[in-house]
């Protein structure tokens, strides 16, 4: 089972850092992850359980640290949105080692994005995801995929806006792909 990707390149987008003022007038900085693990743990401890999707993020301090250890690695790409010194959004590209085409791994990356409830619908999500895709392109990543719950229309609309196209329509979860280069 190999994934289908669009012919068109998404973007291309500028990598971080970025500065913006969100719709609520807050000054937001978007930067690559550098030794910010404790800030990320704090952010996920504040994460609204209602916004969990497909079992992530986990809820306890211990589970959050264990999960972050598996996704925040040298091989991946991580971008954080900051407000007043706190992490308020995190977007990640995680290498997909399970390659189905018989070539070496690392040619496909799974994407996820998390924004704290009070920072949603303020324009941060689209800045964060395009910054992540820009960073991914700078790391010479070619293909990115994600799954999203089919009923999460706001998320699906955001992914489509930045260049993702549905690649598997047969299930509860919609799979989407984007080509970065």
């Amino acid at each position: 089972m190999s994934r289908i990707y669009p012919d068109e390149v998404a973007g291309p987008y500028d990598p971080p850092p970025r500065s913006l003022t969100d719709k609520a007038g807050r000054d937001i900085e978007i930067r690559r992850f550098e030794d910010d693990m404790e800030a990320l743990v704090s952010m996920y401890l504040d994460f609204d359980p209602e916004d969990r999707a497909q079992g992530i993020p986990p809820t306890t301090d211990e589970q959050i640290r264990e999960w972050l250890d598996t996704i925040v690695t040298e091989a991946g790409v991580n971008v954080i949105a900051w407000h007043d010194g706190d992490a308020v959004g995190h977007a990640t590209l995680v290498p997909d080692f399970d390659d189905n085409e018989g070539t070496e791994g690392l040619d496909e990356f799974e994407l996820a994005i998390f924004v704290l409830a009070e920072y949603q619908e303020s324009g941060i999500g689209s800045q964060l995801i395009t910054a992540l895709l820009g960073a991914g392109r700078a790391e010479e990543i070619d293909r990115v995929w994600l799954t999203v719950e089919r009923w999460n229309h706001a998320a699906v609309a955001l992914y489509e806006k930045v260049g993702f196209e549905p690649s598997d329509t047969g299930s509860f979860e919609l799979e989407m792909g984007a080509k970065l280069r």
């Binding site: 497909q54 598996t70 990640t92 399970d98 996820a112 799954t147 047969g170 299930s171 979860e173």
Partner: peptide, 15 residues
């Protein structure tokens, strides 16, 4: 199964 990111992915039979 779980994806590389840890997302639960239900199989087509279960659905």
């Amino acid at each position: 199964e779980t994806s590389p990111l840890g997302k639960v992915q239900l199989g087509s039979i279960a659905e």
